[in-house]
Design a protein around this nucleic acid. Sequence first.
DNA 1: CTTTTCGTTTGATCTGGATCAAGTTGATTC
DNA 2: GAATCAACTTGATCCAGATCAAACGAAAAG
Lengths: 252, 252
Amino acid sequence: MSDRKVISFENLKIACKSCSLVTLCLPMGLDPEDMDRLDRIIKRSRPLHRGDHLFRESDPFECLYIVKTGSVKTYAPSEDGGEQVLGFHLPGELIGLDAIENASHNCSAKVLETAAICEIPFGHLEELSTSMPSLQHQMYRLLSREISQDESMLTLLGKNNAEERLAAFLLSLSARFKRRGFSPYDFYLSMSRHEIGNYLGLAVETVSRLFTRFQEEGLLEVERKHIKLLDLQRMETVTRRSHSDKDRIQST
Amino acid sequence: MSDRKVISFENLKIACKSCSLVTLCLPMGLDPEDMDRLDRIIKRSRPLHRGDHLFRESDPFECLYIVKTGSVKTYAPSEDGGEQVLGFHLPGELIGLDAIENASHNCSAKVLETAAICEIPFGHLEELSTSMPSLQHQMYRLLSREISQDESMLTLLGKNNAEERLAAFLLSLSARFKRRGFSPYDFYLSMSRHEIGNYLGLAVETVSRLFTRFQEEGLLEVERKHIKLLDLQRMETVTRRSHSDKDRIQST
DNA sequence: CTTTTCGTTTGATCTGGATCAAGTTGATTC
DNA sequence: GAATCAACTTGATCCAGATCAAACGAAAAG
């Protein structure tokens, strides 16, 4: 009887080959047959809502997750109730790669905006990649990319001041929205000022003041979560405003 | 004629199965036959000396490197001659994993202490791992571990103050020396104060003052590069001295 | 041996961003 | 509508750690 309902559910469960994310997601570059094989092990859950967890720290590691729609943050909770935000994840991005090693998650993943998620049982994925060199290659690439990203984040936290960090953050979001077919100039933040600050190693107040300052400088317009970047070019230069000649380490 | 020389060179070129690092290195856990297959693609170069580069940023990515003896630092050079130290690498540690994605290195690797290095052509390794599930699994684990480590470094830089960072750094070195059969209490630093500071996002002077302070507090004895940790237990508590209840983010 | 050089230490001062303290603005509930 | 509450903003103050400055010591070079 409730055929319509089933059908509308199924709409969310598009196969990889008909998914708009295919060019920037895990199956990227697989040939149609391989993509089908991968497709068969992927589970597509009903949408999760703001505040829901994909997994929590110390949960047993079963699956990798890919954001299909919506957004997700990952964070490392600390004993005392604090947390370090590790990343914000947009459609097509893979979550959980840091859990492979010790078979349990060492961060938590929480939904920021209602999200459709693809679940990939890692055991199956690993098995599949044994007989599918292109998939194995893709996994190596994605793992490696995650490392590169973490390293540039380390550089950002180690070397850049507050305004450089926020500028870099906004430009990163902008570029990622662009790749996904959204405007790189005009978008909504799915995270709070608090979460941005936490992610960037800054206090909320600093983030807030910087938004105000950037607006005064004509770099952007901001109204709550709504951001309009007015000058990407100039924002780019802000990320290097303090080109610190300091700590050069002379070659030995 | 120079048989002795050849033999002494060959001493450095021990096969994985007779290498003392086998329990914490790439071939860890492979069965003897697989280990031999891996062994055959590994190149063992003559020792490199302080200041030599394994590779530089933007070099084409050909190989992964494993430190066999000595130590190596990796760092991201920036346009203006500065750099961000990304890591210090001890025997058994794999270097270059961040280069897989874009086929060229995005950091540089420089020898700190005369080092024997194993070179692993990545193309061959990837090929091999296609037909060797245990090797593939090991690669996934090592890539994942790198991500975990980078993430805990992000937390350290984002949340911890100067003394917590240095304490954590010393304990990390201590634990890694211990795993390698060296004393966890008594060791030599192969990097300068400057490089430690750079790695931890601190000024040289701060690092120096902290060493002095730790010594005054009876946590360690330091004489130039020589460190004696007197109380690991207490040092552990130093890494959490400021348990900042701040930035809790209430669950939504 | 003396001189240079580079890494390190120590002291004095300065400052970016944290912290503290009020508001303000919207959204949600009653 | 009023009341509550959470997210955000803005201002005032403070401080950890950066920066500046100077000296010291070890090791290398002459």
